[in-house]
Amino acid sequence: MKIKDGFILSEVAGQTVVVAVGKMAKQFNGCIKLNPSSALLWKTLQKGATEEQLVETFMNEYDVQLEQAKEDVKEFVTNLEKAGFLE
């Protein structure tokens, strides 16, 4: 799975924010603030990744147990799916 085109992730005043451009801006005109771990998952998903790959990326960067990592990734992906940001 992959995050749809049309999002910009950027560092603004020390915050990682995501906004939409182009066609996506018509669908989503809000903005999202990401904490460092969600920013890592977001960036990985922009290139495309499976849930297993996300868990692996997450665990390489953060000191978490497998079960916790799986749970966090699942929650993140579910939220993106609900928002319609994934393809």
């Binding site: 005043a13 915050q15 924010v17 906004v19």
Partner: peptide
């Protein structure tokens, strides 16, 4: 500065092109 980011983003006109 961080808590002002959304404030400014919501009080400006956002362009559509990247």
């Amino acid at each position: 500065a961080g808590e002002m980011v959304f404030t400014v983003l919501n009080q400006t006109v956002r362009p559509e092109n990247q």
